[in-house]
């Protein structure tokens, strides 16, 4: 037996009619770590989270969360987890304090304990000043913090955070990152989804990149970065057959292939030694490559390399809370 797993899923599949949303997703998250499911819009992140949180039944596949089977031991799973969904789950017409007290009562605390817990959480999430204001008057960042606080009224062993920072400004995003870091410090397992590579990089011990319902890459941030080194060698080939030949020689290392432009890229560490070796390898006769360029890879490059389309960058995203 290896280390105990907080989340263990195999072959999760889900379709809506003819549309396949998840096509066999495997996930393994060791206890007490942060796992990030990284993917663009519509990749299937929320669907995965809802299945693991027992809110949605998968068509195929099994999963255990906190040691319990999501299909046969729902109740035990629900007792061990908490969920902060993609869309805020607090009542706008109640104050922050009322929302937290309500959640604490629902989690089984008595009236006095609920009041105490609400006060603690308001303090911890820097909301004491707004405790008696209706949530309708909160900013996006405050609402997100309250939402997260609401899922911590009792200490769960696994916490699911579905896109906790989408739509937040950079300052609120930093604050949220700090909160997540603190959670792990207290021994919880954090399962978080995000569209931002930077966020996964900062927070996660392990990342799975999901696209169109499939895991397309997984590993620690360091492993992923190694695989998609931060420099990129872009080759422009002389003609179609040279292009075919070079792409064939690069094999799985080819990224951002563009037959129309006769260009292909591959990862490099940017040293002259490595670039010379690469050129010799893919073009031994020195006839195929017309020009080359070395670029610093952006987050978008990594996304593009892995999924074939660009990621959303936080700056371009508009607030939608």
């Amino acid at each position: 037996m290896g280390e105990p797993l907080a989340v263990e899923a195999t072959g999760l599949a889900k379709s809506y009619g003819p549309i396949s949303v998840l096509a066999g997703v495997d996930i393994a998250v060791p206890q007490g770590t942060v796992f990030s499911l990284l993917g663009p819009n519509g990749a299937g992140k929320t669907t995965t989270v809802r299945i693991l949180a027992t809110l949605l039944r998968p068509d195929r596949g099994q999963a255990r969360v906190a040691g319990f089977d999501i299909a046969r031991e729902r109740r035990q799973v629900r007792r061990s987890i908490s969920l902060t969904g993609q869309y805020a789950a607090v009542d706008e017409l109640q104050t922050g304090e009322e929302n937290l007290r309500m959640m604490a009562r629902l989690a089984g605390l008595d009236r006095r304990a609920a009041r105490r817990r609400a006060a603690e959480l308001l303090d911890r999430f820097d909301l004491t000043g707004a405790a008696r204001r209706r949530v309708g008057t909160y900013s996006g960042g405050m609402r997100r913090r309250l939402d997260l606080a609401a899922s911590l009224v009792v200490q769960p062993s696994v916490i699911f955070l579905d896109e906790p920072t989408t739509g937040l400004d950079p300052r609120s995003r930093l604050a949220m990152w700090q909160v997540v870091t603190d959670l792990v410090g207290s021994g919880m397992t954090v399962f978080l989804t995000t569209q931002y590579l930077e966020e996964a990089d900062r927070l996660a011990d392990k990342i799975s990149l999901i696209d169109a319902g499939r895991v397309v890459a997984e590993g620690t941030p360091a492993e992923l970065k190694q695989r998609f080194a931060d420099q990129r060698l872009e080759l422009h080939l002389v003609d179609g057959s040279a292009y075919e030949e070079v792409v064939r020689r690069l094999g799985p290392r080819a990224i951002a292939t563009n037959p129309a432009q006769l260009s292909v890229s591959t990862a490099t560490d940017g040293t002259a030694l490595h670039i010379r070796a690469l050129l010799d390898e893919v073009d031994p006769d020195h006839t195929a490559v017309r020009r080359f360029a070395v670029h610093t890879a952006t987050l978008d490059d990594v996304f593009l390399a892995l999924t074939g389309h660009t990621a959303t960058s936080p700056e371009k995203e508009t607030a939608d809370v």
Partner: peptide, 10 residues
Amino acid sequence: GGIIDRFRSM
């Protein structure tokens, strides 16, 4: 809204 998911997850 998201609240029903939270209630059910509780």
